[in-house]
Nucleic acid binder design. Sequence first.
DNA 1: GTTAGCACTCTGATATACCGAGTGCTAAAT
DNA 2: ATTTAGCACTCGGTATATCAGAGTGCTAAC
Lengths: 341, 341
Amino acid sequence: MLTERQLSILKAIVDDYVTNAEPVGSRTISKRSDMSFSPATIRNEMSDLEEMGFLEKPHSSAGRIPSQKGYRYYVDHLLSPAQLSVNDMQDIRSQLAVKFHESEQIIQHSAKILSQLTSYTSIVLGPEVFESKLKQIQMIPISKDKAVCIVVTDSGHVENQTVQFPESVEAADVEKVVNILNEKLQGVPIYQLQSRLSQEIASVLKQHVNRYETMYSVLRDVFAEQKQEKVYYGGKTNILSQPEFHDVKRVRAILNLFEEDSLMSRQIRTDNTGLTIRIGEENDFKPFDDLSLVTATYTLGGKYIGTLGILGPTRMEYPRVISLLDHFSKDMSKLLNRSSD
Amino acid sequence: MLTERQLSILKAIVDDYVTNAEPVGSRTISKRSDMSFSPATIRNEMSDLEEMGFLEKPHSSAGRIPSQKGYRYYVDHLLSPAQLSVNDMQDIRSQLAVKFHESEQIIQHSAKILSQLTSYTSIVLGPEVFESKLKQIQMIPISKDKAVCIVVTDSGHVENQTVQFPESVEAADVEKVVNILNEKLQGVPIYQLQSRLSQEIASVLKQHVNRYETMYSVLRDVFAEQKQEKVYYGGKTNILSQPEFHDVKRVRAILNLFEEDSLMSRQIRTDNTGLTIRIGEENDFKPFDDLSLVTATYTLGGKYIGTLGILGPTRMEYPRVISLLDHFSKDMSKLLNRSSD
DNA sequence: GTTAGCACTCTGATATACCGAGTGCTAAAT
DNA sequence: ATTTAGCACTCGGTATATCAGAGTGCTAAC
């Protein structure tokens, strides 16, 4: 169990290190106005804190820096109640006040806002197309043997794909197929489309349509494409301004990661709604071993839609990021709800 | 006028510097098998070449490196006829052989291939949506007051946007409007949509449709969105492996540039079709002052569609990049032509 | 329990010497 | 008249030594 004084020292060290990115020494802490002990006393306490695993020394005659455990304790027990500046709140509000034509745009823009506000990198997961339901399918011919197949979901999301038919397929048949699909598949979740196609629709098509196999394989391809989920980034390079990224090789590694959407999305996703903080190795992902990730979820009608994430050094401004994300995710949920009824 | 010997020395220096990224000295050149003069002789020639502006010295006791003018001369007069390896050609062919559902995918993928093949960064401009013509407009209702507006072009490109109607607008009216639009605007180039809307369509709508102003403003918004052109990147971080990018600040600057699609597209675009090489300051763009950009255009039915660009250090493997781009742009044009008839 | 004092440790900056690669010039060789 | 060997000179980069500053840990005094 930590004493009152140890708590305040730990907090002071984290706060100082977060802003200055340099090991903090006993004198520095002792000089703070809210600290009324001599450096020597502080040193003793620091030594104890180190023994307990909350602090570590880069080398024997430097100051201390928080360990992962130190950050974790700080986040769990010491966080000053978040004080979002009026300025920030107005900023968020006005940024979100711009009118958007698509919820996709809102989400995309939110990544930018978050990165600007925090000067870390933000990673935002869009709604899972996957879970939304089919509204309508259309085939629009654009040349003799080609058409654009458009899939619209109930959330207003649109996927499209150019398909090619052998000459032998007749326009009338295509139309018939589309009609059947719309009749049978409306309201079906996107992720079920494929299995439904093969189970129910295949046989129906067989009965009513010429060139059944061709149509079937085209459709299967279209549905196979409908799976990916969107990942948006804001301030990809913000993270480079952190002193821990002065090595170009690290830079490259992390930047390349950012191109791997599916990998990132797996990394960002959380099961529980609400706020999650993962510090360093808690991410369970080597490239993030000295990074922290704070995520919040946003909702529509109380249902999970997507995740907002902030990625920064473990030495992160947790209080600010947390309150920012908390506030922002709520504002965003509100906005989405308003624009969708 | 340069002597035969000076030419071969210049060529040797460029070739050497391109591969080793280090100033090359007289001894190094003299040792080459195709060079039969002593270092001293080479030194004299180098000194002359420097005086003429083709070479420069990083400092008095280093070797020489090519100046911008040196590279330019090399590119214009000394390039060994491009020798694309069979390996590369096969690589290109097999990579392009994957079947794509959309020409957009081909283009996107081509950026990846080019960056892999060159280990520089590739920047590819997609077809100008702008120039293609309207095929069809659709409104698909997804809730009481919302609909997805879908714009399909003759090139198979699809843009979509969620729009919101006041409750008072009736479904029948929306349908009527869509019919009018399709009748009047089919075949109209995208960039003309806005003006045609205000000139011809506005009055027609006024006559036939209730709530004319609302519909009009919604449509205006939709058409206003149809302007951007797509920029694809491959190997954004490849450029970081160049020794000239060991400074994180430069890295950030260039990487941030890559996020500014419209800026980049302006920078990459060329008027003339065919191959263009811009070396360093020839780019007329400060951030590219020590980079070279090689571009080629690809076509459909002989008409300009887009641009393939390779961005690397001025110390670039010009012969390889040039022949690669030349070959690739032709292959790609062929592919597009084949898949679009 | 707290703190002053002091020896000790380690980093980072600065100065110095030195090696190697390369040049430019002169004089000899071809 | 070229070409080349020889040599003094220049400069960057590395290695080494030195030093100041910041910090710790311990002991002894308060």
